[in-house]
Structure formats: C-alpha cells, structure tokens
C-alpha cells in the first residue's frame, strides 16, 4: 500500500504548468567562420574552386608553408614566427606518442586486437584521452593555472597550495596538486622534465614554460613535478592558444601514437594480448 503524502496530493491538484510555445529566439541565418573561405566554382555552387585559410590560398600554403605553419595558422589566425614554429614542432615530437602503457593507448590497442573497425580506433582512444588524469581534460585547467599565477613566486606558491590543498591529497595513489603537476606512480615523472630541458634551450621558449619549470622544481622535494599535460599546457599558453583549445590540441598531438599502437595490434590474433585468468580475477563486493 502506498503511503500518499497529503500535501503532495494537494500540490498535484494545484500544479499547472505553462503551455508550450515557441520562444522565437533570433537564430543566425547562416553558419559563420573566420577560419576558412570556400569560393564556389562557376557551374556548381556546391563545389569549391578554391579554399583559403585565414586568407591564404590552400595551394599557396602547400607550396610555401610547412604543416606546422598551417596548423598554427588554423588556430591562431596568423603564420608563426620561426621561433614559434620551432617550439610547436618540438612539442609535437615530444608528445607524438603517449606510449603503450598509457590508458588511451591501451584503449587503442584493445580496439585493435579486438578487430574493431579501423576507423574507430582513433576516436575510441581519443575519447579516453579526454580524461582528467594525465589526459586532455587536465590541459585547460593547467593553462589557466599558469596564466593566472605566472607573476607569483613559484616556491612560495607551492607552500601556499600545500597548506590550502593538503587535505585533498588522496590517502593512496597519485595526487595532482594543480592540473598539469603532481606525482606519477608515486614519483616525479622524468620524461616531462627532459622535454622541458630541451624546450628551455629554444629561442621561442616563453615565460610560462620558464615559470612552470621553476614551479616544477619547487614541487620536487614533495615528490611531484611536471606532467606531460602540464608541459603541453605551458607551450600552448606561451604560443597564445586559447585555454579552451588546450584539450583538443593535446588530443591531436597524441593521436599519431595512439593510432600507430592500435593498428599494430589489429592484425594480431586475439591471444597476442594477455587475458586475465579466472584465478587472477576476483569478485570482492564492498
């Protein structure tokens, strides 16, 4: 028997909702873009006779610009300087492969060995790469953090953050004290600092990368430091990319490695990857 709430019953009787009607919001007549212009051929308005990226003809870019130039142009609206081009290219090499132990790569490999359609391997792994732990989901926060604090003394900021956020540290596992910085398998991750060492030597290295390196050094005694996502965020911020673009840019830069590892597994038998035995699979309900 259902115990009816008397007040609720009254509400049911009384409640009258608005009649559904159109708001007539002023939606745009056309989609608009500042990035790409397509000029129609004279005999078919659906066929582009030329395409321009921020005003530059695509064929001209193919002739006279590098891939990195055009990549930068797409997002920033202008061609990069020599220093900016070099900085972005070095980062793209540094982040080209998250490696076979990264969860996003493992998702690609799993899809590959599972004989998932090849065109799905990249989207699958990129979706996982969107995560907030060592993934693209951490980049925007890292960019905003460094942009906001780059005038502050890094050592003092580390002490302040430890004081303010110390209680947030999980009892076990890694802790990212701020997006882009933290511990990795209980240690300071080494490869990000090696990437940064090289970036610091470049003429295009900007103030945020330099500040991030000092912040990372101040974290070291607390067993934390740069993470790859933080390095990417620092470079993106110095190059003037918008923080909201950070996640997608990080995914783009990681994509070659994800796809390569996924495809490597695609022709192997399903037995070429471990399948946890029954003995090693335990059900332990809370």
């Amino acid at each position: 028997m259902i115990n009816k709430d008397v007040r609720g019953e009254e509400m049911e009787k009384q409640q009258r909702h608005q009649k559904v009607s159109v708001r007539s919001e002023p939606f745009a007549d056309k989609v608009s873009t500042r990035i790409w212009e397509e000029l129609a051929s004279s005999d078919n308005p659906y066929i582009a006779d030329s395409s321009r990226c921020h005003g530059y003809d695509l064929i001209d870019l193919m002739r006279g610009a590098s891939y990195i130039d055009t990549f930068y142009l797409l997002f920033r609206g202008e061609l990069p300087s020599t220093d900016e081009r070099q900085l972005l290219e070095k980062l793209m090499i540094g982040l080209i492969n998250p490696g076979p132990r990264h969860p996003a790569t493992r998702a690609a490999m799993n899809a590959g060995i599972g004989k998932t359609d090849p065109q799905h391997i990249l989207p699958i792994s990129l979706a996982i790469m969107g995560g907030e732990h060592l993934g693209a989901g951490e980049v925007e926060g890292a960019m905003r953090f460094m942009r906001r604090h780059r005038r502050e003394d890094p050592a003092r900021l580390v002490e302040q953050l430890l004081k303010e956020r110390g209680e947030e540290q999980p009892e076990e596992g890694d802790w990212h004290i701020v997006p882009g910085f933290g511990s990795c398998f209980g240690s300071v991750d080494l490869m990000p600092s090696k990437l940064v060492t090289l970036l610091l030597e470049l003429p295009g290295c900007g103030e945020i990368i330099k500040w991030g390196a000092r912040f990372s050094a101040a974290l070291e005694k607390h067993n934390m430091g740069w993470l790859n996502v933080g390095v990417a965020a620092a470079v993106f911020a110095d190059l003037g990319f918008h923080p909201r673009s950070g996640a997608g840019l990080f995914q783009l830069l990681s994509a070659p490695g994800l796809l390569a590892h996924g495809m490597e597994q695609a022709n192997k038998p399903i037995t070429a990857m471990p399948f946890i035995s029954d003995k090693a699979y335990t059900i332990d309900y809370d």
């Binding site: 989609v31 873009t33 500042r34 308005p45 530059y56 001209d60 609206g77």
Partner: peptide, 15 residues
Amino acid sequence: RCDDVLYQGKPHRLL
C-alpha cells in the same frame, strides 16, 4: 553550398 557559410575572416592575402 559554398555561399551558405558566411566567411568573416581575413581577405585573400599572399604568403
């Protein structure tokens, strides 16, 4: 169609 997208960016320019 090509002209169904409103282009609001830089005019044509040379490298």
